[in-house]
Amino acid sequence: MGPAQDVLTVRRLRLGIGVVGIAMPIVLTAGNALFAGRLTLLESISGAYHTAMRDVFVGSMCAIGVFLVCYRYRPLDDVLSSVAGALSVTVALFPTAAGARDDPVSASDVLVGRVHQVCAAALFLLLAGFCLFLFTRTDPAAGPVTPEKLVRNRVYRVCGTIIVVAVALAPASTLLPETVQEAVKPVFWCETVAVLAFGVAWLVKGEAIIRDGSGWGADPS
């Protein structure tokens, strides 16, 4: 596989991660509303596991995991993306205990739910790290930094910051009164904002948005 094909493969993986990330909260919400017969927000994106949208949630997380594991660019990117991919699959296969209202929640369910929460938080923080530190790098050998690259770096930093803030607010939101949590679904919104931010960052990295004039795949970082 030649250099041109390598660039094309990396770009397609970036685009795939971005598209699935952005589509997931939208598809899960719309699908759940369709099956429920009314528009109702999920307790969390992960809570889709306990609805008719289980297969879509698991499939989406596994797809993101496969994309991340297959993603190859630089040694550090390779290691971190593989870890993130493994975390994504773990999040899919170890469901959250929240939202499982039809069956009693056992001690093993709680343990599995904790594994889910830890892996989900670690995944989001890794993806924030990609935005803040890896995507913003500049290769001196690639020549002068283009105006488009500077704009993309701003987008990456904004997306990374949004993810970190959303991850911090999600557990903090559990301190709100139960009536407020039930009405607003703050965890769902925190997760949705984080997922959309990560999806946008990967779309920008794949140059579906803010392309360099020199062509797709020109981003040297």
Rank of each mutant, 00 (worst) to 15 (best):
A4T: 07
A4M: 06
V7L: 10
L8T: 14
R12E: 09
R14M: 11
R14G: 07
L15M: 12
G16V: 10
G16M: 11
G18T: 12
G21H: 10
M24C: 13
P25W: 01
P25I: 03
V27W: 04
T29P: 04
A33I: 13
L41E: 11
G47I: 06
H50L: 05
T51I: 05
T51G: 08
R54D: 07
S60C: 15
M61F: 15
C62H: 10
F67C: 12
F67M: 09
Y73A: 13
D78G: 07
D78R: 12
D78E: 12
V79Y: 13
S82Y: 06
A84M: 03
A100P: 02
D103S: 11
V105C: 06
V110Q: 12
V112L: 07
V112S: 10
V115L: 05
V115H: 05
Q117D: 13
Q117Y: 06
V118E: 04
A122R: 02
L125T: 00
L127Q: 02
A128K: 01
C131H: 03
C131N: 11
L134Q: 14
T136S: 12
D139W: 11
G143W: 14
L150P: 05
A170K: 01
P171R: 00
P171A: 01
A172I: 01
E178A: 14
E182R: 14
E191S: 05
T192F: 02
A194T: 01
V200Q: 06
G206P: 13
I209Y: 15
D212T: 12
G215L: 06
A218C: 10
P220I: 08
